[in-house]
Computed example of a mutant assay.
Amino acid sequence: MRKSRDERNEIVFAYAYAESERDAVARVVRELATELRGQGMPVRVLGIPAGSIVASGGGPADRVRRMLSETTFLLRTVGVVFAGHRRMRAFVSVDVPSGLPLVGALARIISSGRVRDAAWVMDLYRLAAHDSGLMTKTRSAVELFALQKSGSIVTIGSCMAQTIQGLLDRQVHVIPLWHRPIERHSPVNAELPLRLLYSGSAREVHPLRDLVAVVAERDDVELTISGSGSEVEAARRDVSGRGIGNVTIREFAPEDELEAMYAGADLHIVSLAEELTGTCVPSKVYAAMGAGRGVFYLGSPTGQAAVDVLASGAGVVVGTRDGASINDALDNLVSRPKVIEEMARRSARFFDANRTIGHGAAKWAEYLVSER
């Protein structure tokens, strides 16, 4: 019996780490799935079971286990496509593992073009990396080939679209990133010290040490870093044993403490190394905006998140490793508390008008039902 059109509307999102609680991409995928279901769309999310996820990092044995886990997931998605393509309207692959867009292409081919396949790209770090290792080169080649074969490509910022178009001569659809609603508490503190917050993981691509060095020499600014990663550990070593009281480095805050921690800061720190511009869009910017707080952005002014900060008047943008400019920006802010209050208002205004999950889901719904 042939299936009716109503039975062919399933939207499948496939992302290996969709069930991870701490993964920012997983959060975005789950939020979108929930919002689309609320609009009456049948949505299925595929991911490695939470108890089977192998964390990144570790030694060679851990990396092998992670690769095997991702390969198993890739094969499972192939099975899902063969078994369920008649129910599908669209198959959306999300970043990991390498080659996942080929599964979407398979769904399109065996359905004779009825299933729409899209590669949703939220991280281009590996494709833009200068790592000459054989594994990185191999995975990059696989990812480029898979993107080339996908029916369509969606990404989260114009800067990323330009990067993809520089690698592949293809049209790229941009659906901006969003963030979940965050309860807004008290207005920003109009008195000194100026309170800065960095929340989340920070690797070498999220430079913080120059900011830490500048803040450590001031008595009118306090900085809290809550998270983990190589850059956090480097900052911890930099301040350890020096009697620096205005820089606090702590572990990740529990989910139920995040909103209060966000509200306790006057400005949120976001950092992305300039050479990585165009490889991702830091979601921390929209978390800050959702909380009604301004942004102190360390990085290039040409990245999507920095463009949003500057266009909305929601913060400042300075170089990641430019200590003098960081210090000058802090001088300007601590001497003009009204500016920080205005940044907070503009930040919330921009978020409410452009970066809620409702805005993102509406664009995705339109994209999924539009003619190809």
Rank of each mutant, 00 (worst) to 15 (best):
residue 1 M to N: 13
residue 1 M to E: 10
residue 5 R to E: 11
residue 7 E to V: 03
residue 10 E to T: 11
residue 10 E to G: 07
residue 14 A to T: 06
residue 14 A to V: 06
residue 18 A to D: 05
residue 23 D to C: 06
residue 24 A to F: 04
residue 27 R to N: 12
residue 31 E to Y: 07
residue 32 L to S: 07
residue 35 E to L: 07
residue 35 E to S: 15
residue 37 R to S: 15
residue 39 Q to R: 15
residue 40 G to E: 03
residue 41 M to V: 07
residue 43 V to H: 05
residue 44 R to Q: 10
residue 45 V to S: 03
residue 45 V to Q: 07
residue 46 L to V: 03
residue 60 P to T: 14
residue 66 R to M: 09
residue 67 M to V: 13
residue 70 E to P: 05
residue 75 L to N: 10
residue 75 L to S: 12
residue 75 L to D: 08
residue 85 H to W: 12
residue 86 R to K: 08
residue 87 R to A: 15
residue 96 V to P: 02
residue 99 G to I: 10
residue 102 L to A: 15
residue 105 A to K: 12
residue 108 R to Q: 13
residue 109 I to C: 10
residue 113 G to N: 02
residue 114 R to P: 08
residue 114 R to D: 08
residue 114 R to H: 13
residue 115 V to F: 10
residue 118 A to W: 02
residue 121 V to K: 06
residue 122 M to T: 15
residue 123 D to W: 03
residue 126 R to M: 11
residue 126 R to L: 15
residue 128 A to N: 09
residue 130 H to S: 15
residue 131 D to Y: 07
residue 139 R to S: 15
residue 141 A to Q: 07
residue 153 I to K: 02
residue 155 T to Y: 00
residue 155 T to W: 00
residue 157 G to S: 09
residue 160 M to N: 00
residue 165 Q to D: 01
residue 166 G to K: 03
residue 167 L to Q: 14
residue 170 R to M: 11
residue 170 R to W: 10
residue 171 Q to P: 09
residue 178 W to E: 12
residue 180 R to K: 09
residue 181 P to C: 02
residue 184 R to L: 03
residue 184 R to Y: 13
residue 184 R to T: 13
residue 185 H to G: 15
residue 188 V to H: 10
residue 189 N to H: 14
residue 189 N to K: 12
residue 196 L to W: 06
residue 199 S to Q: 13
residue 199 S to I: 11
residue 201 S to V: 09
residue 203 R to I: 12
residue 204 E to N: 11
residue 206 H to N: 15
residue 207 P to A: 04
residue 209 R to M: 06
residue 214 V to F: 06
residue 214 V to Q: 03
residue 214 V to I: 14
residue 217 E to V: 00
residue 218 R to H: 04
residue 218 R to C: 03
residue 219 D to P: 00
residue 220 D to G: 09
residue 223 L to A: 09
residue 224 T to L: 14
residue 227 G to K: 06
residue 235 A to N: 01
residue 239 V to C: 05
residue 240 S to F: 14
residue 244 I to G: 09
residue 248 T to P: 04
residue 250 R to G: 07
residue 251 E to R: 15
residue 254 P to F: 10
residue 255 E to G: 01
residue 256 D to T: 10
residue 256 D to K: 01
residue 257 E to V: 02
residue 260 A to V: 07
residue 263 A to W: 05
residue 267 L to M: 13
residue 271 S to M: 03
residue 271 S to N: 08
residue 277 T to G: 04
residue 280 C to Q: 14
residue 288 A to Q: 03
residue 293 R to V: 13
residue 294 G to F: 04
residue 300 S to A: 11
residue 301 P to L: 07
residue 301 P to S: 12
residue 307 V to S: 12
residue 309 V to E: 01
residue 310 L to W: 07
residue 315 G to A: 00
residue 316 V to H: 00
residue 318 V to T: 13
residue 318 V to I: 08
residue 322 D to S: 03
residue 323 G to Q: 11
residue 325 S to D: 12
residue 333 L to T: 11
residue 337 P to W: 06
residue 339 V to W: 00
residue 340 I to Q: 05
residue 341 E to K: 04
residue 342 E to M: 08
residue 342 E to W: 01
residue 345 R to H: 02
residue 347 S to Y: 01
residue 347 S to G: 09
residue 348 A to C: 01
residue 349 R to E: 12
residue 350 F to L: 13
residue 353 A to V: 05
residue 356 T to N: 02
residue 359 H to G: 09
residue 360 G to D: 11
residue 360 G to Q: 12
residue 362 A to L: 05
residue 364 W to Y: 08
residue 365 A to V: 02
residue 368 L to W: 06
residue 372 R to H: 12
